[in-house]
């Protein structure tokens, strides 16, 4: 067996140098994820080796926090809210419909790299239940039948959305947007 040649990730080394102190692991992982969009196995292994931390521990941290992603993300992340209000209004059927349409499961990305699917908790737009987000857009009061139409919009062109700040989204504007 040949010992693999040590790869060098200069950018990662720079991050490690900056944040390498007790308790710094999460910061390092965050910064590296910002750089690549996700934390691949190889990147996790590299960080573990450099920090001399057990790889099991690094991977444990990465899989524990939902803020970390271990797979490349699609251009648009679809978030299906499974909070109580949305759930009651049939969010599960919508989730299922999206899965069928895209042929992926939760936390997976479509082959064309366009969509990543996630189930989320309440996003604070209960008035619009059931709610999904696509990228920065919020789509409310939808039914499964509308799913193909919504998705095709993003497929056809990369819709430049007019709603950017989803945290402060005004429910009425969203509703208007969807009704068009």
């Amino acid at each position: 067996m040949q010992l693999k040649e040590k790869p060098v990730y200069k950018e990662i080394d720079a991050v490690i140098e900056k944040y390498n102190k007790p308790g710094g692991l999460i910061r390092i992982l965050q910064k590296v994820q910002d750089m690549y969009g996700y934390l691949s196995e190889d990147v996790q292994i590299y960080i573990a080796d450099r920090l001399k931390l057990p790889i099991s521990e690094v991977n444990g941290v990465v899989t524990f926090y939902s803020l970390f992603s271990t797979k490349p993300k699609g251009k648009y992340t679809i978030g299906v809210c499974l909070g109580t209000a949305c759930y009651v209004k049939g969010a599960n059927d919508i989730l299922k419909k999206i899965k069928d349409e895209l042929k992926i499961n939760e936390d997976e990305t479509t082959e064309d790299g366009l969509f990543t699917l996630r189930a989320t908790r309440c996003i604070g737009a209960c008035g619009l239940a059931p709610v999904i987000t696509v990228g920065d857009d919020v789509h409310g009061r939808i039914n499964p039948g509308e799913v193909p139409k919504i998705l095709s919009k993003y497929r056809e062109k990369d819709v430049d959305t007019n709603i950017k700040n989803k945290d402060k989204v005004s429910c009425f504007r969203v509703a208007e947007y969807i009704k068009e």
Binding site: K4, K6, D49
Partner: peptide, 10 residues
Amino acid sequence: TPRGLYFNLL
């Protein structure tokens, strides 16, 4: 065989 810490897992 020297196997090293983790790089061998790449």
